[in-house]
Amino acid sequence: MAQHILNAVALGSVYLVFALGMALAWSTIGILNFAHGATFMFSAFTAHVVTQHVALPMPAVVLVAVAAGALIATLTQVLAFGPIMRRATDHRSAELRILIGGIGVAAIPLAIAERVTASAPFGFRGSTYQAQVFEIAGLRMTTTVLVIVVAGIGIGVGVWRWLATSRQGLALRAIGVDSETASLMGVDRSTLALGTMATAGALAGLAGALLTFQLGAIAPASGDQLLIKAFAIVVLGGLGSMGGVIVGAFVLAGAETFVLAMNQGTWVDAVSFGLIFAVLLLRPQGLFGRKEVRRT
């Protein structure tokens, strides 16, 4: 039992690291970035290519992926989302076009990675890092899991508190609630948007590196599968609430682990999406969502 809980926490941390960046951009500057999965994948892919030539230790691999993720997200913002937001007349159509823009952008790194790897899984074999297995009180875990749990919860709580207490966090939240009033109050929307997207991309890169260490390898299509789960986690937690994202990630992971532990592996998606469906029926604004912040 304790082992299952530990596994659920590990899986939840994996989801959390991935969902954090997406949630950050979505709940502050209103960008639901469908290229987040592709950014994640391509950051890991970049680090993979680098480790094929240089044997890097784990922190360096993570750094490469983080830099790659930030770069991809910044480019996405400058070339696609920024122009869409500048040209948009109303918020609603901008949001849909940002979705589509993300879908378009996502196709590009995916196609490149598929072409280069012939869709074969890739990982960081060239890295000097070797996961160590250890046992505490009969619970078996690896150093990778430890890193992910600490990183996931640490960064998750950090981002949550930062948004809640810092001045920039306040400005970002102000944009999330009412962007026009916020810019009248002197918030520079486009600079903040660029910074937020770069941060979100860096988080995607971090997730890419950590997950690839945890899973051994990912494939070009791996990002897509996580994207829908992250979408579910953010909605489950409630849009606009970073605390909700943390809870959402662990709830989803807990449900999935439970179904797998019952050896009903083919029902995992049905149970997790059924759970989300049920939560939304009871709380239409998600677990911790504010009712006022409605985006359509």
């Binding site: 590990a10 945890q214 050896n263 995992v268």
Partner: peptide, 19 residues
């Protein structure tokens, strides 16, 4: 001894391989 089905969307195997 046991037969464990998973889905194509399953990415992390910690739980099934543990059993």
């Amino acid at each position: 001894v046991s037969s464990t089905p998973v889905q194509s969307t399953t990415q992390d195997f910690t739980t099934p391989v543990r059993s």
